[in-house]
Simulated scan of single mutants.
Amino acid sequence: MKIGEVAARTELSLRTIRQYEDSGLVVPSAASEGGFPLYTDADVARLMVIRRMKPLGFTIEETAELLTAVDRLAADTPDTPGELDPDTRAALVARVRGYEHAATERVGELRAQLARVEEFANSLRARLP
């Protein structure tokens, strides 16, 4: 896919996608004959992870750390036994679990914030004639 299609699918701007490329969070899987980046479904999925982390307040560095851990775990398959020693694998799993826990906490905080905002909007609505 060209970057325009990726932008439409992910609802990210071209500029944002390029910033993520520049920071190393996503690397286009291929290039066209003219040298333009081309993206796969896996690249789009990676951008969606990044997109979902941003409103939860994760930094670029945290996003990179999570993606690195997920990539390393995904590379350690039965086809590549011994890629990760048990301690490294356990540390990576713990890191991903830590991010899952942090995301769950942040979702809870956002739900509470949304409830307060809805209460405020309802109070304003109640004051209107």
Results as ranks from 00 to 15, higher is better:
68 T>C: 07
54 K>G: 12
113 Q>E: 09
79 D>V: 09
125 R>V: 00
34 G>E: 03
80 T>K: 07
9 R>S: 15
128 L>K: 01
128 L>V: 11
1 M>T: 13
119 E>P: 05
96 V>N: 02
50 I>L: 06
12 L>M: 15
122 N>F: 00
129 P>I: 00
106 R>G: 02
110 L>D: 03
87 D>H: 06
22 D>R: 13
78 P>K: 05
98 G>F: 05
102 A>R: 14
3 I>D: 12
105 E>T: 10
108 G>M: 00
88 T>K: 04
51 R>S: 11
65 E>M: 09
8 A>W: 09
105 E>G: 07
54 K>T: 00
102 A>W: 05
120 F>N: 07
5 E>M: 11
27 V>I: 13
42 A>D: 15
107 V>K: 11
108 G>F: 03
64 A>G: 10
70 V>S: 04
85 D>K: 04
6 V>Y: 03
71 D>A: 08
57 G>S: 06
29 S>P: 02
128 L>E: 15
35 G>L: 12
99 Y>D: 04
2 K>Q: 14
40 T>D: 12
127 R>P: 03
100 E>K: 06
69 A>V: 10
63 T>S: 13
2 K>D: 12
127 R>N: 09
20 Y>M: 03
111 R>A: 00
14 L>H: 12
88 T>L: 03
88 T>I: 00
116 R>E: 13
104 T>F: 04
82 G>C: 02
79 D>G: 10
96 V>C: 00
13 S>V: 15
59 T>Y: 09
69 A>H: 06
24 G>L: 05
3 I>V: 15
37 P>V: 14
102 A>H: 08
48 M>H: 14
105 E>Y: 00
55 P>R: 03
49 V>C: 04
126 A>P: 00
32 S>M: 07
31 A>L: 11
39 Y>V: 04
54 K>A: 14
71 D>W: 04
54 K>P: 10
32 S>Y: 05
86 P>F: 02
81 P>W: 04
28 P>L: 02
35 G>P: 05
101 H>N: 07
104 T>Q: 06
52 R>T: 10
120 F>E: 12
88 T>F: 02
24 G>R: 04
53 M>W: 05
27 V>T: 15
56 L>A: 04
56 L>G: 01
16 T>D: 11
77 T>P: 01
34 G>Y: 02
55 P>A: 05
124 L>W: 12
69 A>Y: 09
41 D>T: 11
3 I>N: 13
46 R>P: 03
94 A>P: 00
8 A>R: 15
111 R>K: 07
71 D>K: 05
79 D>H: 12
43 D>I: 13
81 P>Q: 01
15 R>L: 10
63 T>I: 14
